[in-house]
Design a protein around this nucleic acid. Structure first.
Length: 592
RNA sequence: GGACCGGUAGUUCAGUUUGGUUAGAACGCCGCCCUGUCACGGCGGAGGUCGCGAGUUCGAGUCUCGUCCGGUCCGCCA
């Protein structure tokens, strides 16, 4: 005895004249007075169910049914009458002529329509997430997510990886982000931290001799959200012993290619490898979108003797650059669009946006149009046009100033212009970025790791003289301008780790307190090892062509890190707080 | 912490620039009609704390200030 004999989507011409029983939701109901149609939906698809007045009990129940009622219908499968076949439905050749109808559960009218023709606001979707997830798009996304994780598991199991879980209640690690903390009842005043990633545990597992580990790991970072950032997210985390960075890159390239092929039938092709330096030089970004053909050209050397201070100052400054971005057919951009772009780059600290429109090269300077022309020598303009290989109809944008400002503003502009002018020349463009600097100075002038402090340097030669020149044995995998994941060869010798930590201002004592267990593990026969983590939610976001990571997560949080469905976070009772020796001190009268 | 966009019927949105009679549309909902539709159709109807709070004004959806919520981005975060 079961609810149904077959799922809706599987009914076809083979079942004609057979009696079947189906169950599902009334996706849509069409009542013609004398005949009633339901599109019955279950997880397999839609099936048209027909009620005729001759079956008068079923018919009268059908009259009372509404959209999203959960029903069970029994009847005979019929070939649809001539001219009523629905080619848009996989089951459109047939229909269920139902004589028995049972309402399993009625439904109130829905707060929003589930059909693909109406859009719904984010707030409403999240509040009624259980309904939002019924929509086809979300069903598709989460099914794909499951499929992808299955393919990844299959691939890694075949390659002899072991899936090992690591704790959620753990200790704060030095990874840079703010921790979520959980009070300990048994140790009053002490706290667990939720892991920002299982980094230390997976390295420890290498010391334990597992050699190949992976896990779909929940990670937690209490930082502000973005379209591609949630406070709680999933990483495909893995680590291997006795491998080089090349081994990991080869493995992951193969894995990602296989998964894309199997899950969405996409051939990703080659994963070109760019050095960090190259990526910054050509694209101003360490996660360049290689679907976009535009590249930066460094034109600093043309302006060292110029009178145009906006360009000559950066041209003569070590930590500055002048990058030109030639946009074919960009001349048609309106003044308004250029003004918008100017505001756009302003967000990243650029003071303005210089440009030259190339209208007609044959008329020399007269054929150009730009507010900066009058400040630049004709000869320099000539050299510039030649160097950039300008064509009629181009527009050239310039970024001049501090390297990081130019890189951030012009690379963002590069993305925006490509999207406005529809310049992307392929659907998928993966790449690896390698040879990252080990360290950089943050705004407070402190040395910080670009990756994390457990990353191995490629050489120790300059590390004390000029740490910023030291490269790390790290690699990021980038897809369509999104950082999909990254990893590195780890430091497996404690002396080297101590050296790196001390450069970062972390002394032995502090290191011992914070992650003594890892240092101890390294000192008891830990093999060389390397690994990587992939942002799984982001990967699904890309594969489903979604604009936000929220659409690849069943129950995501809002930008202010709340859950509109459960109304989390909520308050704790006085009893709970007492038990944890916690008192709340919020100045509720603040506004007074 | 900051910038910007939005919040009006169950939903999506118009109305806000230029304050003025009874705040509209579509879809949904309810009722009636309809035997071949498939985003069925026809007729009729109900449905509003214009996010919230102050202020300006004879009068506020519309103007001002504050505040809350959703979103995009900067800072933050690998």
């Amino acid at each position: 005895m079961s609810f149904r004999s077959i799922s809706c989507g599987f009914v076809n011409e083979d079942h004609i004249d057979q009696e079947i029983e189906v169950a599902g939701w009334i996706h849509r109901r069409r009542d013609h007075g004398g005949v009633i149609f339901f599109d019955l939906r279950d997880s397999s698809g839609l099936l048209q169910v027909v009620y005729n007045p001759e079956d008068n009990e079923a018919f009268s129940i059908a009259e009372g049914c509404r959209n999203e009622f959960v029903i069970r219908a029994k009847g005979i499968v019929r070939k649809r009458p001539e001219g009523t076949v629905n080619k848009g439905l996989p089951t459109g050749m047939v229909e269920l002529n139902s004589s028995v109808l049972e309402i399993l559960n009625p439904s109130k009218p829905l707060p929003f329509s589930l059909d693909e023709h109406t859009s719904v606001g984010e707030e409403t979707r999240l509040k009624y997430r259980f309904l939002d997830l019924r929509r086809e798009e979300m069903q598709r996304n989460l099914r794909l997510r499951s499929k992808v994780s299955q393919e990844i598991r299959k691939f890694l199991e075949k390659n002899e990886f072991l899936e090992i879980e690591t704790p959620i209640l753990t200790k704060a690690t030095p990874e840079g982000a703010r921790d979520y903390i959980v009070p300990s009842r048994t140790y009053p005043g002490s706290f667990f931290a939720l892991p920002q990633s299982p980094q230390l545990f997976k390295q420890t597992l290498m010391a334990s001799g597992f050699e190949k580990y992976y896990q779909f790991a929940k990670c937690f970072r209490d930082e502000d959200l973005r379209a591609d950032r949630q406070p709680e997210f999933t990483q495909l985390d893995l680590e291997c012993s006795f491998v080089t960075s090349q081994d990991i890159m080869d493995l992951i390239t193969e894995m990602i290619r296989k998964v894309f092929k199997k899950a969405i039938d996409v051939d990703l092709g080659d994963f070109p490898v760019l050095t960090y330096e190259e990526a910054i030089k050509k694209y101003g970004s360490d996660k360049p979108d290689l679907r976009n053909p535009l590249q930066f050209v460094e034109v600093k050397e043309l302006f060292t003797d110029s009178d145009f201070k906006v360009f000559s100052d950066p041209a003569n400054s070590e930590d500055s650059r002048i990058a030109a971005l030639r946009v074919p057919n960009g001349e048609k951009l309106t003044r308004k669009q250029i003004d918008d772009y100017t505001n756009f780059v302003g967000q990243f600290g650029a003071k303005g946006l210089a440009y030259i429109r190339i209208i007609d090269l044959s008329s020399g300077k007269e054929g150009l149009q730009s507010p900066i022309l009058k400040f630049i020598d004709d000869q320099i303009i000539e050299e510039l046009l030649t160097k950039l290989e300008c064509q009629n109809g181009d527009i050239i944008f310039f970024g001049a100033g501090k390297k990081n400002v130019v890189n951030e503003s012009l690379s963002s502009l590069r993305d925006l212009v490509a999207s406005d002018l529809d310049l992307l020349n392929k659907d998928w463009a993966p790449c690896w970025i390698v040879d990252f600097p080990m360290f950089e100075y943050n705004k407070s002038g402190e040395l910080t790791p670009l990756h994390h402090p457990f990353t191995s340097p490629t050489s120790l030669d300059d590390i004390e003289k000029d740490p910023t020149r030291t490269l790390s044995d790290a690699y990021d995998v980038v897809l369509n301008g999104t950082e999909l994941g990254g990893g590195s060869v780890r430091i497996h010798e404690s002396e080297i780790l101590y050296k790196v930590l001390s450069l970062l201002g972390i002394e032995q004592k502090e290191a011992q307190e914070k992650f003594g267990f890892l240092l101890s593990a390294l000192e008891h026969g830990c093999p060389p090892h390397a690994g990587l983590a992939i942002g799984f939610d982001r990967m699904i976001m890309l594969m489903t062509n979604s604009d936000s990571i929220r659409d690849s997560i069943a129950f995501p949080k809002t930008q202010s890190a709340s859950c509109l469905l459960t109304e989390a976070p909520g308050s704790a009772s006085i009893e709970q707080l007492d038990e944890l020796n916690i008192s709340i001190d919020i100045d509720t009268e603040e506004e007074m």
